[in-house]
Each structure stands twice: as structure tokens, then as C-alpha cells.
Design a protein around this nucleic acid. Structure first.
Lengths: 235, 235
DNA sequence: CCCAAAATTTGACCTAGGTCATTTTTTAAG
DNA sequence: CTTAAAAAATGACCTAGGTCAAATTTTGGG
């Protein structure tokens, strides 16, 4: 796969969020300052404990943010999808990364160094507003996850996570076909905070109930409403 | 108990955080705009689902932020201690409260209405920096909690929570005596995401191991290092 | 296309911790 | 100080889901 150097002025990330305020001059500036890399599936973007030297911008692909517990067991705390910034939390609070990031698919990720990013924030105070709203959203999601893990049985959490993953894997609304969730049982287990064997068994159950279909490693949701029901999500 | 109307210019909250930038004029303004109320222990500050109309400022006391699950079971997601703002997450992301807040002790809480608060943020963009750093801290804590609940057995989580509570209950460094943690078993269970009976049993265990002492409802930590050890916290 | 290594599935078994019922203790109102 | 109601402790029991081991399937490199 070729590494395509994306150009900032035409980058979807600009439109999506944090950089929407930038004028042409600074967009070009950003373009020159960023370093863009191709990451193969399964590669690590940054490690827990390291000191951030800048910020990563996911241009294409999918990334998991996770921490490793004492016994070496991973816990996935969130995902990053194209258009979001990676490592912003640690950079902003000027502390070491408290989590690691690794690609779940082949990905293209840009790097913007700390001083340039802070320069932009100072020049465009409105970026802080975007950042605040981003953090609020993440905080809410984290709290949702606390409730979920603390109160729901694994089966419900699995259904819930599949519904969330379905949105993450949904190709930008273009394709008519249903999204395929492509994750190892281990990653799935590390989202739910359970064992891989339990994931296997429960996926089998959901399949038997015609809520999902499984082809090899890929999962397709066939009955969204049914899954919402087993996840006990009522909106 | 008398309701003392605290004055903003001398309020510790100003010094602590968000309002540290304000000039004398705006501090007086804030003083006139805020409404201060006394809340008896156990009373509700705001309810999940309601639309925020402003922000609360905890001047004195202790507040739990919690959500109620489908089966009516509470999950405490965090605490607020004097000097912190309540309901800032929902106000900033312009959505309904996703959690309720209730006092755990008699408390004094000020209310600042939305428009005035936003006016201040606009006038003092640096407040956003404070807010960002606050949100980063909370996000980290929330992610810590996810790992903890997902991976640690209840016993470890209890030890961990007691250590955190010990800091929360620590009177401003003045008193030499050890802080007393004063929470119902139910609240404790709702922090850990477990049953009250389990809390009872485990507290009894910790007491037998001379890690804590219990007088009535109040818990004192007698062996911090030992607790860190059972919590598997190694720093 | 082939094959070894890795991932997944399945079965057997076990335990942390949840639930329910009962007793004991604590609390707060009068 | 008394007492009823609430909270906590304790015991008995049970099950969701973890662990370990073995069989089966999938995958990616050559």
C-alpha cells in the first residue's frame, strides 16, 4: 500500500472538528508541519507511560485506546475513528500517556508537534471550545461505560458493544450493505472486560437467536432492534 | 444551621480554579449573580434528565454524582468536593444532565446561571484552559474506574476506593487525626458496583486484618500501606 | 496451494460474589 | 431514655462467568 501524503486544506479532519477555524495561511502551515505516516494493522501508535511530544490525527483507519492491567490483561477504553485526535488528553494535561494506542486496521495517521499545536490553540481560542466539547463527549461515554460494566451482565454488554461497533464500522453512509465488525475475540473481550471464551459462547448464543451472523471472524448485525432489546436499551 | 452567604471575592473556589482569572469587578458581579443555598445531607441538587440552567459551585460539603440503572440500582460515578463545579459537563455540551447529584453531608452550594457563566467564559478565554484541564483530569479518573471495575475483584476495588475516599474526607490538611469515612454501606456498594452485603463482609475482613477500624458507620484507615498492597497499587 | 502457528470453539469444572432470609445494631423521632 | 424504623451483619444457597484443557478452525507466510 502506498503512503499518500494527504493535504491539510482538503483533509476531512479540518472540516470535522478542531481545525475548522484555521485560515488558509495556517492550514498550509499545518500542512508543512505535520508528518504523515502509514501504520500497518496491529501496530502501536504510542505507549502508555511515554511523554507526549505532539498530537496524532487519525486520517484513515481505526485505532484502539487501551490500558494494560497488572496481570497483563488489556482493557480497551475507547476507539478513535477518522477525524479524531489521538493523545489529546495527555498532551493537554501535560502528563505521560495513561493509555496506549494501536491500529486495528491499516491506518494513516498524521503527527503534529506540541509547540505548533499549542501555537494554534493560542492563536485560535475557539479551538478550546471544540476541545471542551470533545472532552465532554468522551467523559460521558466513559461514564456510560462505567455504568455498563458495573451493572450489566456480559451478555447485555456484548449486545451493547456490538451496536456501538456497528456505528464505528459503518462506512460513511455510502454503502448499502451492512457493516462487518472485524475484531478478534480477544479485542472484543477486552472491550467488555471479560474472557475470550465467554465472548465465543455468547456470540454463538446471539447467532442462534438470529440477532447476528458470523462469517469467520467477521460479525454482521442482522436484527438491530432485537439487539437493542437484549442490551436493554430503550430510547 | 445558619445559611451563611459566602462572598465570592473571599471564596476558596476562586483561588482553587476556574475563577482565578476574574478581576475585582467581575468577582463582585459574580457575587451578585450567584444564588447560595444550604442543602441538608441526602438532598438532591439536580436530577438526571433535566435541562441545566446554570452551574453549581460546591462551597462546603460533599456531593455524589450518580446514575440510576434500569433496575433502580445506583452507580456513583464521581464525587465533588469543595471548590469544584457541579454539572459543568452537561452545561458545556448543551445537553440534559446525564447523572443526578445529591449531598452526602450538609452542604453549601452556589448557583450561577448559564448566561452569566457563558459571559464569563467569553470574557476570559483562559477559563477554557482551566476547564479543559479539569475535564482531562475527570476523564482520566473515569478511565481509571473502568479498568478498576473491569479487572479487579471487589476486595481490591474496596481497598482502592477507601484510599480515594480517605483523601476526599481528609480535612484540609489541618487536623492531625485520621479522617473518618462516613458513608452508608449502600453508597459504598454503589461506588464499587457491588451488593451491600458484600461490602459488609469485605469491610469485616479488612478490619480483621487490621487495615481499617470501624466505629458504627465510620471507617478509619489504620494501615495505608497495607491497603495499597491489597488494592495492588504500586507507585 | 500448503502448513505451522495462532485464534477460536467447546466442554468440564470451580469460585467470587449475588440474592434472599433472618438477626443484630444503629439511628433518629418523640 | 424509649422505641420503632432503618441500616448493617451474618448465614445459606446459587449462578454467572472465569479458568484450564483439548479439539477445531482460520490465517498468513513461503
Amino acid at each position: 500500500m502506498k503512503v499518500v501524503q494527504p493535504s491539510c486544506p482538503s483533509c476531512l479532519i479540518k472540516a470535522l472538528s478542531f481545525f475548522s477555524e484555521l485560515d488558509t495561511f495556517d492550514l498550509l502551515n499545518l500542512n508543512n508541519n505535520k508528518i504523515c505516516n502509514f501504520y500497518k494493522k496491529g501496530h502501536i501508535v504510542f505507549y502508555e507511560g511515554r511523554i507526549p511530544t505532539g498530537i496524532y490525527c487519525l486520517e484513515q483507519g481505526l485505532v484502539k485506546i487501551y490500558r494494560v492491567g497488572i496481570d497483563g490483561k488489556e482493557q480497551i477504553v475507547r476507539f478513535s475513528t477518522p477525524g479524531s485526535l489521538l493523545g489529546i488528553r495527555s498532551l493537554l494535561s501535560e502528563e505521560r500517556y495513561t493509555a496506549s494506542a494501536a491500529t486495528l486496521e491499516d491506518s494513516v495517521i498524521c503527527f503534529i508537534n506540541k509547540s505548533f499545536f499549542f501555537h494554534l490553540i493560542n492563536k485560535y481560542p475557539k479551538m478550546n471550545v471544540e476541545i471542551v466539547s470533545y472532552l465532554c463527549r468522551k467523559l460521558k461515554e466513559a461514564e456510560d461505560k462505567i455504568i455498563s460494566i458495573a451493572q450489566k451482565p456480559v451478555r447485555e454488554r456484548l449486545a451493547e458493544s456490538l451496536l456501538i461497533l456497528n456505528r464505528i464500522y459503518k462506512p460513511n453512509g455510502k454503502s448499502v450493505s451492512k457493516p462487518k465488525i472485524l475484531l478478534s475475540r480477544e479485542d472484543l473481550a477486552n472491550i467488555l472486560g471479560t474472557a475470550t471464551e465467554t465472548v465465543s459462547r455468547l456470540l454463538h448464543e446471539l447467532k442462534d437467536e438470529n440477532l447476528i451472523s458470523i462469517e469467520g471472524r467477521s460479525i454482521t448485525l442482522t436484527d438491530i432492534e432485537g439487539l437493542k432489546h437484549t442490551a436493554k436499551i430503550f430510547e
